[in-house]
């Protein structure tokens, strides 16, 4: 019976702490809001529609005249959506950051990254060894710990092709 009462009290206290703790914690800044799912943006809807119209012609659902009409109409809609698309939206953000990083590294006399005594400045900001000759880098410091580790590694090389 006492054990049960203690358990009940513990449950109650834990629940109360869980619910009330945010009220006493200092107002932490909210994380940046997540970008829209591309499928719900006007751009995504219009692009998908165009592809669907192509496929419907291919499966014989759309006659040639209907296809021409719809293709023209939805191309216009898609162009409209692209025109109104904010430039720093969603995926572009990563590319902007990478581009800035690349610019900084390539800039003459840049101090942004570590330098190798023989091979010059290294592009990897947190490199400890030179990626070209393998020597230990002088003054290797972890300057930007998060970017590479925090991002999804597999997307970064593939996107760099676009830059």
């Amino acid at each position: 019976m006492t054990g049960e009462a203690i358990a009940a009290a513990l449950v109650g206290l834990a629940a109360l702490w869980l619910v009330l703790q945010p009220l006493f914690a200092a107002g932490r800044p909210l994380p940046p809001s997540e970008p829209l799912d591309p499928e719900e943006t006007p751009r995504g809807v219009a692009l998908t529609a165009l592809k669907e119209i192509d496929f419907d012609r291919e499966t014989g659902k759309l006659s040639e005249t209907d296809y021409q009409f719809l293709k023209a109409k939805y191309t216009a809609i898609a162009l409209e959506a692209l025109r109104h698309e904010p430039h720093d939206s969603g995926g572009d953000r990563l590319e902007v950051m990478i581009a800035a990083r690349v610019r900084a590294v390539r800039a003459p006399g840049s101090e942004a990254g570590p330098r190798c005594g023989t091979c010059g400045p290294r592009p990897e900001p947190d490199a400890v060894f030179c990626s070209s000759c393998g020597r230990k880098l002088a003054g290797a410091v972890v300057t930007e710990p998060g970017l590479i580790r925090g991002g999804t590694p597999d997307t970064i090389p593939s996107r760099s092709a676009v830059i």
């Binding site: 692009l47 165009l50 592809k51 023209a72 191309t75 216009a76 898609a78 162009l79 692209l82």
Partner: peptide, 21 residues
């Protein structure tokens, strides 16, 4: 008939965007 009025760059951009789909 619907006419698509767009500059070549815009059309290129659309083509590029469509490749992603």
């Amino acid at each position: 008939p619907p006419q698509v009025a767009a500059s070549p760059e815009e059309l290129e951009r659309l083509r590029h965007a469509l490749e992603e789909v």
